[in-house]
Measured scan of single mutants.
Amino acid sequence: KYTPEEIEKLKELRIKHGNDWATIGAALGRSASSVKDRCR
């Protein structure tokens, strides 16, 4: 489950890194597949 803060951070990282899920996941301390599924 993602907190509202994590979702905000995810949005920012998505703008910065696009679909680089590995980088976004690492920044959030989550797996690449987890953040990818969250963005769907």
Score class of each variant (00 low, 15 high):
G25M: 01
G25N: 02
K1Y: 11
S31T: 14
V35K: 00
H17R: 01
S31L: 03
E8C: 08
R30G: 07
E6F: 00
R14H: 13
I24K: 03
I24Q: 08
R38L: 13
H17V: 01
T23Q: 12
H17F: 08
E12S: 13
D20R: 00
R40W: 11
G18I: 00
R30Y: 07
S33L: 10
R14P: 06
G25V: 00
K16P: 03
G29P: 03
E12K: 13
A22V: 12
R38Y: 13
E8P: 02
T23C: 10
L28T: 04
R40N: 13
G18V: 03
T23W: 02
H17D: 06
S33N: 14
V35E: 09
S31F: 02
V35F: 00
A26M: 05
V35H: 02
I24W: 00
I24P: 05
I15G: 14
S34M: 05
R14Y: 01
A32W: 03
T23P: 04
K16C: 11
T3L: 04
S34I: 02
R30K: 14
K11A: 12
V35C: 08
T3K: 06
H17K: 02
C39T: 08
E12F: 08
C39S: 11
E12A: 14
L13R: 01
N19H: 12
S34F: 00
G29F: 00
H17N: 03
D20A: 05
G18R: 07
L10C: 00
E8T: 12
R14S: 10
K36I: 05
S33F: 06
E12I: 12
N19G: 10
L13G: 04
K36E: 15
W21S: 09
K36H: 12
K1E: 01
G29T: 03
A32H: 02
A22E: 08
D37Q: 15
A32C: 03
E5Y: 06
I7A: 10
K36M: 15
I24F: 01
T3E: 01
I7G: 05
V35D: 07
G29H: 08
I15E: 15
S34Q: 11
E5A: 12
D37R: 15
A27Y: 03
D20P: 01
E12G: 11
L28E: 02
T3R: 06
D20C: 05
S33P: 08
G25D: 05
E8V: 09
E5H: 05
K1M: 11
I24L: 08
I7H: 06
G29S: 05
A22K: 12
A32R: 03
R40H: 10
R30C: 12
L28C: 05
R40I: 13
E5I: 05
I7R: 07
E12V: 10
L13S: 10
R30A: 07
T23R: 13
P4R: 12
R30D: 10
A22F: 06
K11Y: 08
N19F: 04
N19S: 14
E6Q: 08
T23H: 06
A26Q: 15
K9V: 03
T3N: 11
E6S: 02
A26E: 13
S34V: 06
H17C: 01
A22W: 05
Y2D: 08
I24S: 04
K16Y: 04
G29Q: 09
V35Y: 00
N19T: 14
K36N: 08
Y2G: 10
E6P: 01
R40P: 09
K1I: 13
G25E: 04
I15S: 12
P4Y: 07
R14E: 05
E5M: 06
D37C: 07
V35W: 00
K1R: 04
S33T: 13
Y2K: 09
E6R: 01
R40G: 15
G18W: 03
K11C: 07
G29A: 03
A27C: 08
E5C: 00
Y2P: 04
A32D: 03
V35S: 03
E6G: 01
N19C: 13
K16H: 09
L13P: 00
D37H: 11
W21Y: 12
P4V: 13
G29W: 00
K9G: 04
R40T: 15
I7L: 14
D37V: 09
E12Q: 14
R14V: 11
A27P: 02
K36S: 10
C39I: 05
